[in-house]
Structure formats: C-alpha cells, structure tokens
C-alpha cells in the first residue's frame, strides 16, 4: 500500500474529498466551510473542486445545520455537517439526540439517517471554557448515534470514510490540537477502517493503557519512554466509542492484568467510567491484579491561562508515573 506523510487535518480533507469524488450524494455544509475552508482549514480546496452546490456555507445556525443534515440524510443524501467547535453541538442537540438518533427506531426500522457530524473537540488552544470541551460522553449516552474519536492521521482518514459510508448518524470528534500532527496515511481510496474496531497501538505485557484522541500521543510517548526502563505497556485505542471494541479491551486486560484509562474529558460522567464498568462486569475482572486507574480531565471548566489550561488534562509525566505506580503495585 502506498503511504504519504500528511497532517491529521489533511487526512480528514482527503477522506471527504475521496468520498465526494466517488458518490455525488455526499455533500459538505457548515459555517465557513466553503471559500474560507473551515475555521481550522480542514476543507481548504474542496469548494474549488466541488463547487457551491456540494460545499455549502451555512448561516451561523447550529440547530438547523444538524437538523438539515438529518432531513437530507433521511431523504437520500449522505451529508457531512461541520459544527465549528464541539461546544456548539449543544445548540444542535435536538436535531442529533431527538431527531437523527431516534428516527430509525421510532419509525419501526423504515428510515435510515446516513449523516456525519464532524466537530473538533478539546482544549490546548487558549480558547477557554466555551471553545475547548470534550463532550463525547454525551453522545455515547444516546442509542442510535455512533461516536468516533480518531487519534492519528491514518485513523482520521480511514474512520471518516467509514463514517460517511455508514447508514447511521455518526458524531465524528476531531481533535483540534492534533490537526497539525503528521503521520503516514494510506493513499488507497478503499482504505476504510470499520467502526467498532479498535487497534493495539503498542503491544505489551505489564499493563494495558486505553486511550483515544488527543491523549493517545501522550500515552504512546510515555509507553516508549518506559520501554527503555523495562516496562512493557500495551496501548489500546478503541478509536470508536460507540460501537466499542469490547473484545479487544477485555482480551488485553486478561493478558496484562492491569488497566489504566486516559482521556482529556472531565472524569465525572465521562466515557472512561463506562469502559471501567464494562471491564469490571466482564470475565476480565478476575484477571485484574490492581484497581483500575482513570486519568482524566479535572472536573472544571477549561481555564484560559496557559499554565492552568495545561494543568487540567493528564500530562506525559502524570501518565508515566501512573503506569509506574500501577506496575510496581503502588496503587
């Protein structure tokens, strides 16, 4: 397979571009996605290639962006809607939660809603409390939605292509601080990563660390550091939270007997609690040699000051220390 090094942002762009070339029912709309190329530049060049009928600027109207996507999807298009910041999905909640997620079930299986709602989450940009949240757990709590959080450029491409081809509403949570991160990306236009399939990013035997999104590179850095010290860390990235690759997680925990969970979102009510509970209820529980540890964001709104902002999410040092503590039975 041919690979090319590119940024996470360009990988998202490539996924959309390839799918729009293949299927003319795929269209993109959102705030400033046209000539401007999106607030983070993700759709740069697409307006020029596909024109204003397929790459459409909307008014600043998140509720109708999401609802219009649902209505277009249920009548035969495969829309991609961009919500500029994940924080603004709160304005689109009725369309996502009460409409898109419910139509298929509520109508007895007669409807399908093949839409993707792309939105960047996460802190680290100095944008403070209303432009920095990681709200993925909200969507995981709504049956009918699928939730994807890619942590690498290759995953961003392969998962977005799967999301566009999926016949369900998919909330695709991009990571704004990863947009400029580079990685090797398969150029095959049939490179599609099935939703619900995790990946073992590092094989190891001493402890399982599960992470996704922005925290994944930090976990990998900690794992690579500790390898030099003789600690073998298995890093599992579920990549999609709904559906969740439970089997991969359970198998890994059974192998290592120790589990650490890392994400950026606030700890209380977050998705790490769900993974922890799932493992506790599974056959893997009997294999655990230590309590499950969660490293998550602090339960505070995201602050502005850069030192405060950095302090609310797990650092590489904190992740490394947690791994050492768990492996050496200090926790």
């Amino acid at each position: 397979m041919e690979y090319k090094e590119m940024t996470y942002k360009d990988a998202v762009n490539l996924a959309m571009t390839e799918e729009m070339r293949k299927d003319e029912n795929v269209i993109l709309f959102g705030e400033d996605v046209g000539l401007y190329g999106g607030a983070f530049g993700v759709s740069v060049g697409m307006f020029e290639e596909f024109g204003p009928e397929r790459v459409k600027d909307t008014p600043i109207s998140e509720a109708v962006i999401a609802g219009c996507a649902a209505g277009a999807a249920v009548t035969g298009l495969r829309p991609i809607a961009e919500i500029m910041f994940m924080d603004f999905t709160t304005i689109a909640m009725d369309a996502l939660v009460n409409q898109a997620a419910k139509m298929r079930y509520m109508f007895g299986g007669k409807a399908q809603v093949p839409m993707v709602l792309r939105t960047p989450g996460g802190s680290g940009t100095g944008a403070a409390a209303q432009h920095s949240q990681s709200l993925e757990a909200w969507f995981c709590h709504v049956p009918g939605l699928k939730v994807v959080v890619p942590g690498t450029p290759a995953d961003a491409k392969g998962l977005l292509k799967a999301a566009i081809r999926d016949n369900n509403p998919v909330v695709f949570v991009e990571q704004k601080t990863l947009y400029k991160e580079k990685g090797e990306v398969p150029m095959d236009d049939e490179f599609v990563i099935p939703l619900g399939k995790g990946e073992i990013k590092r094989e190891g035997s001493d402890v399982t660390v599960i992470s996704y999104g922005r925290m994944l590179p930090r976990v990998l850095e900690a794992a690579d550091d500790l390898k030099k010290e003789g600690i073998s860390v298995e890093v599992v990235d579920p990549r999609t939270l709904v559906p969740l690759d439970k089997e991969m997680i359970i198998d890994s925990v059974k192998k290592t007997g120790k589990l650490i969970l890392v994400n950026e979102a606030c700890k209380t009510g977050g998705f790490l609690g769900e993974i922890s509970a799932m493992v506790s209820e599974s056959e893997a529980f009997d294999y655990l040699d230590a309590p499950i540890v969660r490293l998550a964001g602090l339960d505070v709104p995201v602050p502005y000051n850069p030192e405060l902002e950095a302090a609310i999410v797990p650092s590489v040092d904190q992740i490394r220390q947690a791994i050492v503590d768990v492996v050496t039975n200090k926790r």
């Binding site: 109708v64 219009c68 209505g71 277009a72 249920v74």
Partner: peptide, 11 residues
C-alpha cells in the same frame, strides 16, 4: 423545521 430544510435540500 430543520428536517424539512434537509428534505428540501435533497429535492
């Protein structure tokens, strides 16, 4: 309201 917009966009 917004579903109708989407359905109309398809048409």
């Amino acid at each position: 309201h917004s579903l109708a917009c989407g359905a109309a966009l398809t048409q």
